[in-house]
C-alpha cells in the first residue's frame, strides 16, 4: 500500500515540470541562450534563499531586450506543503512571489535555452536546491560560465577566478546597476557576447 502511494507520487510530477522536460525532447541544435543571475541571501546554497532572478535572452548573437525575465521572491519561511503545486498563483501580478512560483516561471521562460551566468554553478545549485524541495530532478539545461570562458581564452589555471567586476573592467563594460539580478544579467550578457566572439563559439 505504502509502496504504491509512493510510486504514484514519484510518477505524478507537476504539470509545469513535464512541460519543461518536454522542451528537451527534440534534439535540434539550440541557439537561444539565456543569461541569468540570481541574487541570494548568502553564498551557501543549502541554507540561503533566492531573493530575485533576472535574465535576458541572446539569439543569433543579439541580446533581445523584450525576451526578458525578472522576479522578486517573498522572504518567508519556506513551507512546501502549503504551496499548491499545479501552476496556480498564475495571476499573481504582485511585485513579489513565492520561491516556487519564481522557479516555475523561470523554467517556463528558459525552456531549452543554454543557460549562461558568471560563476553559474552557484546559481544552478540555488535553482536545483529549490527544485529538490519540490521533489523534482535537477535542471536539464546546458550551461556556460563566463568565468570559465575567460579562463579558457587566457589559458588560466582552473583555480584562478575573476569576478564579474574585474572582467567588466577588462572588457570596458559599464557597471552601473551592479548587484541587481537583471543588472548583472545584462552585464553578463554583454560579457558573454564578447567572450563568445573571441572564443569563436
Amino acid at each position: 500500500m505504502n509502496w504504491n502511494w509512493f510510486k504514484k507520487i514519484a510518477k505524478d510530477k507537476p504539470k509545469f515540470w513535464e512541460t519543461y522536460l518536454s522542451n528537451f525532447e527534440d534534439k535540434e541544435r539550440r541557439n537561444r541562450y539565456v543569461v541569468f543571475d540570481c541574487e541570494s541571501t548568502g553564498l551557501d546554497y543549502k541554507k540561503d534563499r533566492i531573493l530575485s532572478i533576472g535574465a535576458v535572452a541572446i539569439v543569433d548573437n543579439v541580446i533581445e531586450v523584450k525576451d526578458y525575465f525578472e522576479v522578486f521572491v517573498i522572504q518567508e519561511l519556506f513551507k512546501p506543503e502549503s504551496v499548491p503545486i499545479h501552476g496556480i498563483m498564475r495571476n499573481g501580478n504582485e511585485d513579489k512571489i513565492v520561491e516556487v512560483e519564481a522557479i516555475i516561471r523561470f523554467l517556463e521562460y528558459v525552456k531549452d535555452a543554454t543557460l549562461v551566468g558568471h560563476h553559474v554553478n552557484f546559481d544552478i545549485e540555488l535553482i536545483n536546491e529549490a527544485l529538490s524541495k519540490l521533489d523534482l530532478g535537477k535542471i536539464k539545461n546546458d550551461y556556460m560560465d563566463t568565468d570559465a570562458m575567460y579562463q579558457k581564452l587566457k589559458y588560466l589555471p582552473y583555480e584562478e577566478h575573476r569576478s564579474l567586476d574585474e572582467l567588466c573592467d577588462i572588457y570596458k563594460i559599464r557597471k552601473s546597476d551592479r548587484h541587481t539580478a537583471s543588472g548583472d544579467a545584462f552585464i553578463t550578457a554583454l560579457l558573454f557576447l564578447k567572450l563568445k566572439k573571441k572564443l569563436e563559439i
Binding site: 531586450v65 525575465f69 546597476d177 537583471s182 544579467a185
Partner: peptide, 10 residues
C-alpha cells in the same frame, strides 16, 4: 513585469 534592462537602455 517591469523590464529593468529596458529601463536601463531607456
Amino acid at each position: 513585469m517591469n523590464n529593468s534592462i529596458a529601463q536601463r537602455i531607456a
